[in-house]
Nucleic acid binder design. Structure first.
Length: 875
RNA sequence: GGGAGCAUAGCUCAGUUGGUUUAGAGCAUCUGCCUUACAAGCAGAGGGUCCGCGGUUCGAACCCGUGUGCUCCCA
């Protein structure tokens, strides 16, 4: 079979993914094996694959594939969340293009369009994950608005309400006066705007004025206080005094609070609790009156007393004129500030108070805090425990209502008089309302369900058990087997939105933690360190990258740059490194395949030469496998990949294959070939979770296989023999030093040399001398008891090597290098002696440390002696 | 404003309870090589005030204090 010059991934990747799916390797059923369960952090149903997903899902796939190869029953559940805000925005946009306004549709008509959109365009990302090789159990694909899931979300709402954890309360929201709807924070676009800062004088009760600065003078009519910094000398005398709101002469108090910045405006702040987020909080703190001066369409309300029914911006103009006439304007400054605009209607957003549904978090979250603090759930890296604790100890109540239609509709029904009941169905709510209001004549048509729906996180916090119907069908076989799940892989920015809440829900509804380990990935940034985002447009097209480099290379590239817990600076050059690695593997395969053609049962020469190489690599493989195992259990994935990369590229390709390689057109013995193939197979096993496609391909090209690598059990690493490892390391070091000496003396690679070894133990070198000759291009090796004159001298610990070349040697250059080495050794020795002559060191340090320093001294002295001898022989 | 994290080679990072040779790796750089698996490669090399200052210690990249810079989260 002819193998291509370079590795070409596209067809190979498509072929194997289909094969794995056909064999149903990724589908899991409960059995007697240990389960390894991972639930995917559900991407938005509107989502397309970006770098964050790529990193996140690569990591999950590595963990899952590795567990599978370790004989566990691996189950990785895919799915999406309904993403109420994002999806509703998409659907509204699509309708707008068709010329349909959302306001012209009934709720159910709108939802029909939304479902249609979801079926047609939703979940593209799940297709894209296949391209990446993700070994997800597709039969389990879940969705937060599937009927069972929907019912569970409603059940949880009713349950928490009945337990007293859910209540209604006021909250400042972003109000779109044109669409007459609340906006989520994500739907508000902040723009830099040229405004005016009006300095307005308020008359004081005890005479004189206090001046405040505002950009929204129309809100003056809703003022409830004036606030100053308690440390502000200018206003100290005014604490607790009163001033009058201009034009309407309402009396308001002057209160001190550290919230006010001394250096902004005049240092005095007008407090308008009904129309500003921060003012509202000040209002809460000091129990100020809330005067809502605006109607839902942005006109002034009766509470404003003046300008009733006039638009807010017309009022801004008019009130400034009136204030000016009344002598209240001190000055007007130009001012640049940020103003929020509605993403939908592009009008200026008004902060407005509104009744919302809340979850009371304090009590509910207590078990979730201790679970993480006491390491029942392990965070990786552990530094996120601090962050988690801080948030959980200061947890705030959770506003769960959203003014949207796409989502789980809040199961609360209201009468016209404002009485309400929470229940799973309208009928149950009606029964409750009949009782609570005493009005037995109420009918279903008299009550109206809440129009809002629930925050998406209020459904995704049930994800780890509800994907197994753990609430809708509690104690079913699946949830009992798969829950608690094993590892959650997610981004640190949703530690509170999602991770904390899943833990809370897990304890509340299953009485168990939702997962054993949480691995937080870094945030993917571009080369300049900027977070990748749609708005910056700095996120590359992943599918194009996969086409260009191959999925294995993309997986490699993104993981190699991603140390545990640190952000990753994404640079395409790391994908190139991944592609080059693929190619390296491919070429190693080509070499081994070439040996097949030269197989000769009678060949024994190469076997004798290769024996050392085989013995060494076998042990090296065991040693590194153990290292990788350790790194993986510590979730140091990128380190593990680096270790495997180096094992394959350096140890296997650069050392082992070169050592075991037969001479030009020489035969290969079956032993060498078979051993090499088995090493290659084990390397593919190790690498498979990281780069599944090429490893599966090579595994099958190496020899006919009875099973696929994807479901093959990994070898258990045997204990490595330290002595063999040490002689391998020595051999590598000798070769490198000799090659370096050749280089520095300008010997061309093709110039053969003679090598003399002066060693304490010549036998030690006999087994490796064929390799040594091959690797340093020596045509002869001999042993000597005395220094050889006019040669290049190389010093190892105790042993010396002499390179004899046909070329004239540059003795001046050699001398110069020896002197440099000598100077280094002298400095080193001096530092060791200094340490050893310090009495306190000798008294306090552990004996083994002192012995070590003594050895350093002896070694350095020995090395200096040989250098001096060499210098003498040159002179 | 409150909180958290980070700072080691040009870049990205390792560096275990303080002592294993005056600090390691990958990438990048430089030098020499188209050597029959691989130039997407081979062989080799150079490169560091471990952010500044102070302290603890016989001994600090590591522990403590402090300053500076960067990043993130919450409001």
């Amino acid at each position: 079979m002819e193998l291509s010059k370079n590795y070409i991934p596209t067809e190979i990747e498509a072929k194997w993914y289909q094969h794995w799916i056909d064999r149903q390797y990724f589908s899991s059923k409960p059995d007697e094996r240990e389960a390894y369960t991972v639930v995917i952090p559900p991407p938005n149903v509107t989502g397309v694959l970006h770098m964050g997903h790529c990193l996140n899902n690569t990591i999950q796939d590595i963990l899952v594939r590795r567990a599978r190869m370790q004989g566990k029953n691996a189950c990785w559940v895919p799915g999406t969340d309904h993403a109420s805000i994002a999806t509703e925005a998409k659907v509204v946009g699509m309708l707008r293009e068709k010329g349909i306004a959302k306001s012209s549709l009934s709720r159910s008509e709108f939802l029909d369009y939304a479902w249609e959109w979801k079926e047609k365009y939703g979940g593209i990302i799940l297709q894209q994950l296949r391209k990446m090789g993700c070994s997800l159990d597709w039969d389990r694909t879940s969705f937060t608005m599937n009927p069972d899931y929907y019912a569970s979300v409603i059940q949880v709402f009713v349950d928490l309400y009945q337990k007293g954890y859910i209540y209604r309360g006021k909250r400042m929201i972003n109000w779109d006066v044109k669409a007459k709807t609340a906006l989520s924070d994500e739907e508000v676009i902040y723009k830099v705007v040229q405004s005016k800062l009006y300095h307005v004088k308020y008359k004081l009760e005890n005479g004189g004025f206090i001046t405040i600065a505002t950009v929204r003078p129309e809100t003056i009519l809703g003022d409830a206080a004036i606030c100053v910094n308690p440390a502000d000398e200018r206003y100290k005398s005014l604490h607790g005094q009163y001033a009058f709101v201009p034009l309407i002469n309402r009396k308001i108090k002057i209160i001190p609070d550290e919230y006010v910045a001394l250096d902004f405006g005049t240092g005095a702040l007008k407090v308008t609790p009904a129309h500003d987020m921060n003012d509202y909080q000040l209002g809460q703190k000091y129990q100020l009156e809330i005067i809502d001066t605006m109607n839902d369409d942005g006109t002034m309300s009766e509470a404003a007393q003046l300008y009733i029914g006039m638009d807010r911006f017309a009022v801004r103009k008019k009130i400034v004129e009136d204030l000016e006439t009344a002598g209240h304007i001190e000055k007007i400054e130009e001012y640049t500030n940020q103003v929020g605009f509605s993403e939908r209607t592009d009008v200026v957003v008004e902060p407005r108070l509104s009744l919302q549904w809340w979850v009371s978090m304090k009590e509910l979250s207590a078990p979730a805090l201790s679970a993480v603090m006491e390491d029942e759930i392990h965070f990786h890296p552990t530094k996120f425990k601090n962050l988690y604790r801080h948030w959980m100890e200061n947890v705030k109540d959770w506003c769960i209502s959203r003014q949207l239609w796409w989502g789980h509709r809040i199961p609360a029904w209201y009468t016209k008089d404002g009485a309400f009941a929470v229940a799973k169905t309208a009928e149950e709510a009606l029964d409750q309302l009949k009782k609570s209001t005493g009005n037995t004549a109420l009918t279903l048509s008299d009550i109206h369900q809440d129009d809002d729906c629930l925050d998406t996180w209020f459904s995704s916090w049930l994800w780890p058990f509800e994907v197994f119907k753990g609430l809708s069908d509690p104690d079913n076989k699946e949830v009992s087997y798969y829950y608690p799940t094993s590892t959650l892989v997610t981004a640190p920015e949703i530690i509170f939105f999602w991770v904390a809440r899943m833990i809370i829900a897990g304890y509340e509804y299953k009485g168990l933690k939702p997962f054993k380990d949480v691995y937080f990935t870094g945030i993917v940034r571009d080369k300049l360190g900027r977070k990748m985002s749609k708005s910056l447009g700095n996120s590359p097209d992943l599918l194009a990258l996969i086409d260009q480099y191959g999925a294995d290379a993309v997986r490699f590239g993104i993981l190699i740059a991603s140390p545990a817990g640190n952000d990753i600076l994404f640079d395409e050059s790391s994908l190139e490194q991944g592609r080059n690695f693929n190619n390296k593997l491919w070429n190693a395969l080509k070499l081994v395949k070439m040996w097949e053609g030269r197989l000769d049962n009678a060949a024994t020469n190469d076997a004798a030469d290769a024996e050392f190489a085989i013995n060494w690599f076998e042990n090296r493989l065991n040693q590194v496998s153990t290292e990788v195992e350790e790194l993986m259990t510590q979730f140091k994935l990128s380190e593990a990949l680096k270790t495997i990369y180096s094992l394959i590229w350096d140890d296997f390709c650069s050392w082992y294959l070169e050592w075991a390689k037969p001479g030009f057109e020489q035969p290969v013995s079956p032993m060498v070939l078979n051993k090499t193939i088995s090493f290659f197979e084990r390397l593919m096993e190790l690498l498979h979770p990281f780069m599944p496609f090429i490893t599966e391909e090579i595994f099958h090209l190496l020899k006919p296989q009875t099973e696929d690598l994807t479901v093959k059990l990994q070898h258990k690493a045997a204990k490595a023999d330290e002595n063999i490892l040490a002689s391998g390391a020595l051999l590598k070091e000798v070769i490198t030093k000799l090659r370096d000496a050749r280089n520095k003396n300008q010997l061309k690679p093709k110039d053969p040399v003679s090598l003399y070894i002066m060693a304490e133990d010549n036998k030690g070198y006999q087994s490796i001398s064929p390799i040594l000759m091959k690797q340093v291009n020596a045509n002869k090796v001999s042993y000597t008891a005395e220094a050889i004159p006019n040669t290049i001298v190389i010093n190892m610990e105790k042993d010396k090597f002499f390179i004899e070349a046909a070329q004239q040697l540059d003795t001046d250059a050699i001398k110069e290098r020896l002197l440099k080495d000598l100077a280094y050794e002298q400095n080193f020795l001096a530092s060791v002696i200094k340490k050893l002559s310090n009495e306190k060191f000798v008294q306090n340090a552990k004996p083994e440390i002192i012995a070590l320093e003594r050895k350093k001294q002896a070694d350095a002295e020995a090395r200096m002696k040989t250098i001096e001898e060499s210098l003498k022989s040159l002179a």
